[in-house]
Design a protein around this nucleic acid. Structure first.
Ligand code: FES
Ligand code: FES
Lengths: 151, 151
DNA sequence: GCCATCTGTAACAACACAAGTGACATGACG
DNA sequence: CGTCATGTCACTTGTGTTGTTACAGATGGC
């Protein structure tokens, strides 16, 4: 459990759902992510609130993609997850009295904010469709066989 | 304890040590960081191995700065700490069989690596002396009083 | 030699947070 | 109504930094 893998998982799920027209239940999704249905529902709740997916209860229910992959960027997904902490490092005290510490934290925060801005800019510039297409191309180059998930 | 604050703390300590010629004991340092002497020794061990500081046991012992601040970059300190994890997010599986997941992780890793490279480049381009000078300038602009630590 | 001082290190508890898990209410369909 | 599926709560687990206690080893002054 070293890292927060919610973003990675959600990207995977969304592309998966695009490749299968039918709705997918939390249990099916949890199987393909090697995890638990509750974790899936918990994590995808944010995506539903933003309208990227929709869920239906009862017979034949489950999750469906509500918008085309070309209209969803990685940043959208990240935001839908509640903008979790990106960095594992950070300043020591909230509001230190020591002026040196303030200077150190300020310098560190500057560098981190720059890196964060770059990362978010990158995430915002890539749509899920691009990743899906990239995958298709790589697949076709490797073999002509059609790809289908284990599930 | 939300973040890994070792880097921030060590930068603070190093600049502090430069402003006080005499050696500082772990206990004094722990007081100024609001922490524990053992944590200080544990964290500063890496800096000692790299030769940025030296420690002496017994009476009058403690920690002393072994190299001028102008020869230590933030990246040096980061490396001396063992290059701790920078990001809190990451891919889901180590080596997924699903090709879509591979594509997702690859896209994500690309963006993260770019951000990491930028951050490390920034850390490598800033010396501790620069931060210390920046602090001096700000201090002088604010008031003519000489600054001295609480400890 | 002896004692106070300070580092070095092991061992373990505390804490935060994502992830895993079980229980149960709720809604939808046949 | 019974089944299937989501929605949500409460709790446990896993992982890594941080905090803490305990003790061994080295150093210098008496
Ligand atoms: S796309 Fe990876 S399991 Fe369906
Ligand atoms: S420089 Fe901040 S306590 Fe000394």
């Amino acid at each position: 459990m070293r890292n927060d893998s919610r973003l990675s998982r959600m990207l995977h799920v969304l592309i998966h759902m695009d490749r299968h027209e039918h709705s997918a239940t939390s249990e099916m999704i949890s199987k393909m992510l090697n995890t638990n249905p509750v974790v899936v529902r918990r994590t995808m709740a944010g995506l539903r609130e933003r309208g990227y997916v929709s869920s239906e209860k009862g017979h034949g229910g489950g999750w469906t993609l509500a918008r085309p992959l070309s209209e969803i960027t990685l940043l959208d997904v990240y935001n839908a997850l509640g903008e979790p902490h990106l960095f594992a490092i950070g300043p020591a005290g909230d509001q230190p009295q020591c002026l040196v510490e303030q200077a150190v934290n300020s310098a560190l925060a500057d560098a981190m904010q720059e890196a964060e801005a770059l990362l978010l800019r990158r995430l915002g510039s890539v749509t899920l469709k691009q990743i899906a297409d990239e995958f298709e191309a790589k697949l076709e180059a490797r073999s002509a066989a059609a790809y289908s998930c284990a599930s």
